[in-house]
Design a protein around this nucleic acid. Sequence first.
DNA 1: AATCACATACCGACTGGTTAGTCTGCTCGG
DNA 2: CCGAGCAGACTAACCAGTCGGTATGTGATT
Lengths: 216, 216
Amino acid sequence: MATRAGTGRQARGGETGAAGPDSRGGTPAPVPQRLMAAATRLFAEQGYDRTSVQEIVEAAGVTKGALYHYFGSKDDLLHEIYGRLLRLQQERLDLLAEREAPVEERLRQVAADVVVTTIENLDDAMIFFRSMHQLSPEKQKQVRAERRRYHERFRALIEEGRRAGVFSDATPADLVVDYHFGSVHHLSSWYSADGPLTPQEVADHLADLLLRALRP
Amino acid sequence: MATRAGTGRQARGGETGAAGPDSRGGTPAPVPQRLMAAATRLFAEQGYDRTSVQEIVEAAGVTKGALYHYFGSKDDLLHEIYGRLLRLQQERLDLLAEREAPVEERLRQVAADVVVTTIENLDDAMIFFRSMHQLSPEKQKQVRAERRRYHERFRALIEEGRRAGVFSDATPADLVVDYHFGSVHHLSSWYSADGPLTPQEVADHLADLLLRALRP
DNA sequence: AATCACATACCGACTGGTTAGTCTGCTCGG
DNA sequence: CCGAGCAGACTAACCAGTCGGTATGTGATT
């Protein structure tokens, strides 16, 4: 349904294969990917509203006709960026949460992992929390729903740890989740690859702060 | 240069007196305040770029002539909103940090206070975190510098506590500061006055999480 | 193997609408 | 009578999205 046939929307193409939009001199990446990459960079640099469709297509080396062939609207591009990040993080959360390990160890891994993947996709993350409100209300609702699922999965881990008696229950679990995700969102406004800390180090520290705060 | 001779900039007027833009039927609030109040509300609701100057002046019951009489540009309005919040929080931080009390008590109060004042000015805060990058580079630099002063003052408290042996030094102090302010920034995306928690309760919980994370 | 039918992929000029900021001039208190 | 305070028409720029058109490929029919 999604791809060809009727409307040529919803690109998404090669999630596998080379990471960059153009993996060296060989064949250039497909047009939809080039558009997504250009939009991501420009949205992160200038903001959504300040980036014109014209700029995006020029950066991707195509024209408006191509963009509107693959995407329904400018705001579709934004929605795809969100989808990409959310799918990635949800997938990793599910993977880690189901492991065999003490709950405090699983929470630590999950808390650190979301930090690492956020830093590794810092442009996406920056766009995420800056431009959410610029999505159409309908798409916004959808994104929020997915986000909530993520938070609930995370909260479930905290509650599991409480029942097991390894976490304090001094603070409502929702608040603890928001406390941690606040710091995750905030990453894009201070983390720099030039800084002294690697993504993994930052992640370990932040996860450690969370676990320390939860000590009984 | 920008405006006319006398540069009628920098409104700011009655910081004292009635809080609202129009304190009941009597005399309406002065035009600059009405403009600031209207701009604050609209920026928070729709975002900076999506709010037209025309909307602002209509909401304030004046015309463009009035706005450009008092403010140099649309982005000046934004800058004033930042200034208002930053001045308020800096002032309160200085006040609390200089009190006579054990350092852990002072940190707790400071950490909670910034949460309360953020919630009490949630529109300002939301605009702050969403629209920073829409300021002119020059004004952005200025705001960042003020923000940094605030963070450094906060960090100094943590370091004082470490020297006194009451805080753990497992995590770099900068990271701890960013951890806490992440959650403060994040407030505007989840806190609701209709929720079960009062601002003070949220503040106490968040301050508690910080202090718990810092236990040696 | 040549032709036809049809779809995908893309081009780029164009449209209708919006925007920040300017400018001239009115009004009214002192 | 003068200037601060403001009105509101105006300008020059810009922008998302549309649309008619072209090129290329593919499968079926002759």
